[in-house]
Amino acid sequence: MKIRTLGRHVREGVKNLGRNGWMSFASISAVSITLFILGVFLILAMNVNYFAQSVEKQVEIRVFLDVLATKENVAQVEQNIKTIPKVDTVTFIPKEEGLKQFKESLGEKAYLFEGLEKDNPLPDTLVVKTKDPKDTSVVAAQIKKLEYVKNLNYGEGTVEKLFAWTGAIRNVGIAFIIGLGFTAMFLIANTIKLTIVARRREIEIMKLVGATNWFIRWPFFVEGLLMGIIGGLIPTAMLTIGYYYLLDGIQSSFEAAQLFKLLPLFPLVYQVAMALLAIGAFIGIWGSLVSVRRFLRV
């Protein structure tokens, strides 16, 4: 195919959008509306995931060391924990620091523990975070076996339940997105099919004057691509503006800001835009090519 012909196909595809004004409008609307709904769910699912992640990140293992352990022993334990592959960070909290933190958490009643500095009853503590929060219990079991480790605490039981919940929420989210994605594809492809059925005569005439199948397909390809992209841009713009105001509204109220920790506008909107445009373009092209194929046999 000559470059000039490609130019012709692109021009023709663009013109066809205008020539079939109402049909294009119907298709673009169908794409926009379904992708808008998909986008809303996408943003929702991403935020739920973000929330689950931030909850999971708070999971840590507090390792209480033997009060008799020397500084060298402590350093050795810290080193041993660091060599476990699944461990991300190890923070050492000496017993003095531990007491200070404890008193701070008591607030006004801190005076009850005045004078304990000299004879600190608290053990030295190591705070361990794993790379993947789901490995917490496995890592905890490994640490427990180490020498000078007296005890440890990571919220056993509660943590497992938490992970079960966050996992379930994620799966439901993914299932929803996939289901919605298929519905969107079906709906859009159907609308595009209708607009092309209306033009079967046109395709028949093109064939009768000697157009090759690809010569007929190309403008439809361009047209489908454009419809998909326009149909993706509209909901992207709406969702970006909507999300911006949602964030703005939440941040203006202190309580709401504490309660709902949402993903920042960027890069969320980029990701959503990419997803919607890609789906739109794919469905647009696929819908038109599949529909044209039915009428090429003349």
Partner: peptide, 16 residues
């Protein structure tokens, strides 16, 4: 089809 010209009873023009 390119090597022959065809004319139909119902003209078969592209309406748009």
């Amino acid at each position: 089809r390119r090597s022959i010209g065809v004319v139909f009873q119902d003209f078969k023009l592209l309406p748009t």
